[in-house]
Every structure is written in structure tokens, then in C-alpha cells.
Design a binder for these strands. Structure first.
Length: 420
DNA sequence: TCTGGGGTCCTAGGACCC
DNA sequence: TCTGGGGTCCTAGGACCC
């Protein structure tokens, strides 16, 4: 059996944890740059605030209903997510952290009469240790555990747990689950399936395999197998080494000066380099891209990206910034209002398996020591204390985060004060 | 004024090789 | 009229996830 533990309205629950007065009231959390709604409390869902809705279009609805609005605070959510994972780890040997608010637990070695009991214990322990409400779904495969979890959220709110033990139960839940609500079926496949007469997950299980294979590739085939109760999506206990790393941001305001765009892009390259060093990888290829705001019809539009092959794989901020700037020079065009830029590094190799070049003039050992020192200082004294000149200090490209909550759990001066 | 960011996997088609 | 076959690598595009 596999359990899926999912935090309820996670970002909202994190904000509420340190603001208990928001319990029972509508709360939403916005995406980076305060763009769209990405988390909603049940009360916010009830008044019709849609997931992904642009915040400015929701303005009236938000004010009229006195909705509490937060900018996203990933430092806080990440830290609480770690606590949830630590709590769960005490119960099982194998666990896969699937996302910031979900984990799959491998229960295959555990013997229980009824897993419902275990599920309830998990739920209560997380609530009392961390303070975050979770829902637990248990079934034979990951896909079914997801479905059980969704079912619990919808129909068994009070208990918050659902163990899909018998075939009858599985069948019943399948018949109550719309095909678009199956994990792995997105908008496009949902349309296709419904067009062909498959409305519920039960219809999908009974679909001819060849048809699925032909129209949804092996991905669909795997999904079908999982729905039939045969596991074929493995548990991944150790975080996979990333094959690509991307840092991309919309700017706080539209940029039309090259210097501002350079600063933003240099910072993105530097972030990519940090992420590379963190997973002990080097990249062989760097991509830089730049674009205007597609939603502004009054503006001329421009989108370009460029790939640069690196002579020797690297994770040095200095070198990546150098190539990012080189790429930017080639694609930057005057006379546009730019909205977003990004740096993507790929063709990653482990940092201790580098293919050196005979003509390489760079002192890579020195680079490595320098980056090590830089990471240490920045870790200790806060992000980006030490930086390269081209990263600059302009505020223009920075994210809008008008309603950011304090980092209650990771910054001393942000500790919650109970009483002055 | 204001519409997120960071990933994965799969497939088809072209270039190229022997 | 006849015009190989098998393989790899790369890229772009499309689907999905949170």
C-alpha cells in the first residue's frame, strides 16, 4: 500500500499558523510578483475566487469579502514543509517528497489490519507537531492513492483520511471521479477522452489499451495500469539529480533600459550557478531568454532565446554571468518594454567528472575556492551580500511582494512576539 | 498599472553515420 | 523501372505535474 499525505491549502495554512485570527476567514496567497492567486482557503474558494486568477481582476471580490491577501513567502513554506516531512519520516522507512506540500509513504512493509488507524495517527501527529492540517489517502498505487486523497478531501472532510481497501470501494470511487481529475490527465487529454465517451475514471479503466497507447502514448498506458491497481510508477526516495535548472522572473515593472535587464539577467545566472553548486553539478549549455508582456496588446512584442555551448562545463557564477551577458548582448533589442528574462542551464554533469579542455586558460581551482567562499559568506550573512558588479543594486527588476509575511521560522528578527 | 515559476517525460522529424 | 536499412543524436513541441 501507498499513502499520499497532502497538506490542506498549504500556503494558506502556513500563513494562518502564525495568524490564528484568520482561521475560518477567507485567505489567499499570490504567486511571485503578486500576479495570480495560487492558494485559497476553503472560505475563499466558496466565494468564487478561482485558482490562477489574476489578482488585479479579483480586486473587488477580495475587498468586498475582506479576504486576507499574502505575497508568497517560500522561505516560510519551505521551512514548514521540512517539519512536516521530518514528522512523517518517524513513521515509515521509505518516503518520497513529491512536492512542497505532498509526500508518498511506502507502506508495503507495514502490517496493519486497517490502515485507517495509521492514517489518522499521521494526521493528528502532523497537526500537533507542526500545526498544519493534512489529508491522507491510502491505496495500492500512487495514482489510486492520489485519488483516495482527493476523495477524502471532497467527501470525508471531517475525518481527513481514506483507505481504499476493497475492489468495490475502488470501483465506487473510480465511478465518482471525473476523468479530468485523475492524476496525469490534464486539460488536453480530458477533452480528448470526453470526446471519445470516457467520462469517469471507471470508463477510463475499461478503455481499450491499444486506443490509450495510440492516443496517450506510454504515459497513458502506465496510468491505466496504475488505475487497475498494478503499481508502475516507482517510489523515488532520494531526490533525483535535476537535468535542467532554470531561473526566470517577471520584472517588478516593465524594463526598457538594457542596463536594468543586464542586472536582472546577471542575477538569474548567479542564482543558477548557486543551484548548480548545491547539487554538485556543472552545466555545458546555457540558455538566455527575454520577452515582452504578451498581455499588453498596445506594446510591440518580442521573444528571443539563445543557447551558448560552454567550452568546459562550469558552475562558477563569474563564468556563467559572463556567458549570460554575452548571450543577452546577442538577443537584446532596443525599443521594447521587457517583462521577463530567464537563464536555463542544462547538459549537466557531476562536478567531479569534468572533461577538461587543452586550450582552457581559466584557473578552475581558484574559481572553485572563490565560489566556496562566496557561498559561505552569503549563507551566513544573507543572500547576495557578496555579488558581482554587474548584478547591481537596482530595485526596478525586483519582484513585487507588497504583502509578504515575516519569515517566522528562519529569521531571528522575525520571531513572533506574543506579548510586548 | 496589474496575468507565476520550475520542473519532467515523450514523440516526431531531421541530420548524420556506416 | 529501379533508388537500403539500421542506428544515434539533437531539437522542437506538446503533454503533464505542483
Amino acid at each position: 500500500m501507498i499513502a499520499l499525505v497532502d497538506c490542506n491549502n498549504f500556503y494558506v495554512s502556513c500563513e494562518r499558523l502564525f495568524c490564528p485570527s484568520l482561521e475560518g476567514k477567507p485567505v489567499v496567497v499570490l504567486s511571485n510578483n503578486d500576479g495570480c492567486v495560487i492558494a485559497r482557503s476553503d472560505e475563499a474558494k466558496a466565494i468564487g475566487i478561482e485558482m490562477g486568477a489574476p489578482a488585479f481582476m479579483m480586486d473587488r471580490l477580495l475587498t468586498e469579502n475582506k479576504v486576507a491577501v499574502f505575497s508568497s513567502n517560500y522561505t516560510l513554506y519551505g521551512s514548514l514543509s521540512d517539519r512536516v516531512v521530518k514528522t512523517l519520516q518517524a513513521f515509515v522507512e521509505n518516503l518520497e517528497v513529491y512536492s512542497i506540500d505532498e509526500a508518498f509513504l511506502d507502506l508495503t512493509t507495514m502490517v496493519y489490519e486497517d490502515f485507517t488507524e495509521l492514517a489518522s495517527t499521521l494526521r493528528q501527529t502532523v497537526k500537533s507537531n507542526v500545526g498544519i492540517p493534512v489529508t491522507v489517502g491510502i491505496a495500492k498505487t500512487k495514482t489510486l492513492a492520489k485519488m483516495a486523497n482527493r476523495y477524502a478531501k471532497k467527501h470525508m472532510k471531517a475525518a481527513g483520511v481514506f483507505y481504499m481497501d476493497t475492489d468495490d470501494k475502488v470501483k465506487q470511487v473510480l465511478s465518482l471521479t471525473g476523468v479530468g481529475d485523475v492524476w496525469g490527465v490534464g486539460k488536453q487529454y480530458e477533452k480528448l477522452l470526453i470526446r471519445n465517451g470516457f467520462k469517469t475514471a471507471l470508463d477510463l479503466v475499461n478503455a481499450p489499451e491499444e486506443w490509450i497507447r495510440k492516443n496517450m502514448s506510454v504515459v497513458g498506458q502506465r496510468l491505466l495500469t496504475e488505475l487497475k491497481g498494478i503499481p508502475c510508477i516507482e517510489m523515488e526516495e532520494t531526490a533525483a539529480i535535476k537535468k535542467a535548472i532554470c531561473t526566470a522572473r517577471s520584472f517588478g515593472e516593465l524594463l526598457s533600459s538594457k542596463e536594468d535587464v543586464r542586472q536582472a539577467t546577471a542575477n538569474q545566472a548567479s542564482r543558477c550557478a548557486e543551484k548548480l553548486r548545491k547539487q554538485k553539478s556543472c552545466c555545458k549549455l546555457i540558455q538566455v531568454f527575454l520577452q515582452t508582456n504578451v498581455h499588453r496588446q498596445q506594446d510591440k512584442q518580442y521573444f528571443r532565446s539563445i543557447n551558448l555551448d560552454l567550452p568546459v562545463a562550469t558552475n562558477s557564477s563569474a563564468e556563467l554571468i559572463f556567458y549570460a551577458m554575452k548571450g543577452l548582448d546577442r538577443i537584446y533589442k532596443e525599443g521594447y518594454n521587457f517583462k521577463k528574462s530567464g537563464v536555463l542551464v542544462t547538459n549537466l554533469v557531476p562536478e567531479n567528472e569534468l572533461q577538461m579542455s587543452m586550450f582552457d586558460k581559466r584557473d578552475r581551482e581558484k574559481d572553485k575556492r572563490l565560489m566556496g567562499a562566496l557561498d559561505k559568506v552569503n549563507f551566513r550573512f544573507g543572500k547576495d551580500l557578496v555579488r558581482f558588479a554587474v548584478q547591481g543594486y537596482s530595485e526596478k527588476w525586483k519582484l513585487r511582494q507588497a504583502r509578504l509575511s515575516p519569515c517566522y521560522t528562519t529569521r531571528l528578527e522575525d520571531l513572533l512576539t506574543i506579548k510586548d
